[in-house]
Design a protein around this nucleic acid. Structure first.
Lengths: 311, 311
DNA sequence: TTGATAATTGGGAGCGCTCCCTAAATACCA
DNA sequence: TGGTATTTAGGGAGCGCTCCCAATTATCAA
């Protein structure tokens, strides 16, 4: 017994430990996994279909959180970047191959076939990002809607009348949720929804710049961008057009990435706890693996409006 | 025989394939790993000790390259973010546990204890980033020295006389190599090395901004920054000080990250093939696992000076 | 001291696969 | 058609561990 078997003598246990030390013995995980039926490995699936997605600082931070929780609990991470062409075959193959005790899926898209496959299986899994329809899926997400609501409300309450929106991609859940928050804030403050002030972005720097360029002729006096990357790019576009931030156009972002604090002016933004999200999703999944429990776990992490100088 | 055993009848093979299809049978990788002594899993170790390191777009891109090569060759990736406090124990434990056929180590630091442990073992491994002393270690790296040399030479040849350097951290190999390139370019063009024009950065945005602020009083007319993140931040610092890029101070970066192309002015920088680096290191490692070969493999990938408007 | 009970230990089966060796089937040639 | 060479199929051992049960030893009360 290499492990701490509960009914093994104190003396024996000690001797075993000494021998382990002396030989610097490492149990073979493949054998252990085979015999015990559990490997202490978590799968982490990240879709990279959307081109810009991996240059976003979001993903590394999630990985960092997951990794940190796994280290603490003695788990390892198997990483798959799900390139679209592999989804059908490889992913499902890989997932059922007995190397993994559970899976975390970074679920951006509103319709991810992988999720359906997983819910049919009996492999424990959680998603980062809520599922739009299936109520039985366990997830961790941040309060995207409420965060956007807060940000846009703040813009309105600080006297801005034409608040534009650079949204996230429409086929992402977070993009939709943040857009909803924008809409609701407008409605609750009795403001009209003006189509010319709404542009779809792709969360990326380049996309934000382009979106702002298209927005400029409509003369917004504030912009809510669904990501900091886009917000910062929009700020650049505004300044290059000879306008001032926040005097001519105020900006509110979403994420609070490191560079948001040091832009000029510093970006007012909605902070989401990215590393924390990764940690919690991993912890919850490990809990569920070790103590199976049919109760759905749906966790919504709070966001926080960080007021700086851009609005 | 689930695999394509070379001496198995054509008819039988076909029948086996059909049955596999019909049952959508998935071989258990743990069992296969145990029996065959190989798991088709690669370890990827990334140190996250340096705080800012994971917000750098470099790492995701390397992962992407490694992942892409692994997908092609039917390998999976086991990811470890090596938090410093785990290095001694966990990392070496994990690496010898039989779950892995080989390891890729993203080796930034000039003295990484993990590398020494690995070279004592007989686990195939490669590093990304050359090793400063041990000649027997297989690595893939980019031409950091020559890239910096090209960039700095270009600055000098375009008429700049006081070329400053915002270097990478001194305890990183790439930081040293790029600094060497800077020095050599200065020397080969008969320019003096002025200590007041040399500042150590940490590759990060914030570090670059701070470094530039310190550099400003020394009145450089050009700056070579060892990363684009620093270069972009330096550009901001210069512009905020009321100076123009490139008229007052020219800037040359290193990396060619996406935002380098859309900054204002667009950044002249040394492009390094990051995804490619990941691909090649994974491919080479897999080759070495499948066809052991004591010959050292040291690969230096070329870089390319991308001339845009900042210099 | 003895018997009953509890704590501990050692041994064997088996996890699902690969590898190797032998037996059987088939092909080939005189 | 018989015999040999060759291909193909099948069976068994074993990879290194965990789990479970039987055997052993220690513990305690009468």
């Amino acid at each position: 017994m290499v492990n701490s078997d509960p009914n093994v003598g104190e003396r024996t246990r000690k001797r075993v430990q000494e021998v382990i030390q002396a030989l610097s013995f490492q149990p073979n995980m493949a054998a252990r996994g085979l015999a015990a039926g559990k490997t202490r490995v978590l799968g982490l699936v990240i879709p990279v279909g959307i081109s810009s997605i991996f240059s976003d600082p979001y993903f590394p931070l999630v990985i960092q959180g997951v990794s940190s929780a796994c280290n603490l609990r003695g788990y390892s991470i198997m990483l798959w970047l799900a390139e679209p062409q592999f989804e059908r075959k490889t992913i499902s193959q890989i997932i059922y191959n007995g190397l993994i005790d559970g899976v975390i899926v970074l679920s951006m898209l509103t319709d991810d076939p992988l999720i359906d496959r997983l819910s049919e299986s009996n492999l424990p899994f959680m998603t980062i990002g809520r599922h739009p329809t299936n109520q039985k899926i366990n997830y961790v997400d941040v309060e995207n809607r409420s965060g956007a609501y807060q940000g846009v409300s703040y813009a309105i309450e600080t006297g801005h009348r034409r608040v534009a929106c650079i949204g996230g991609p429409r086929n992402t859940i977070s993009g939709q949720d943040r857009y909803q928050g924008y809409l609701e804030a407008l409605r609750d403050h009795g403001r009209p929804v003006l189509p010319e002030l709404i542009v779809e972005g792709d969360y990326s720097d380049a996309g934000g710049y382009q979106a702002m360029t298209r927005l400029l002729p409509s003369k917004p006096d504030a912009v809510f961008a669904a990501s900091d990357a886009m917000a910062l790019a929009a700020m650049r576009a505004i300044q290059e057009a000879g306008l001032r931030v926040p005097e001519d156009i105020a900006i509110i972002g979403f994420d609070d990435i490191p560079s948001a604090a040091i832009s000029k002016p510093p970006l007012t933004t909605v902070r989401q706890p990215i590393v924390q999200t990764g940690k919690i999703v991993a912890e919850t999944l490990i809990d569920r693996i070790e103590h199976p429990d049919p109760e759905p776990h749906r966790i919504l992490l709070p966001v926080e409006l960080v007021i700086r100088a851009s609005c």
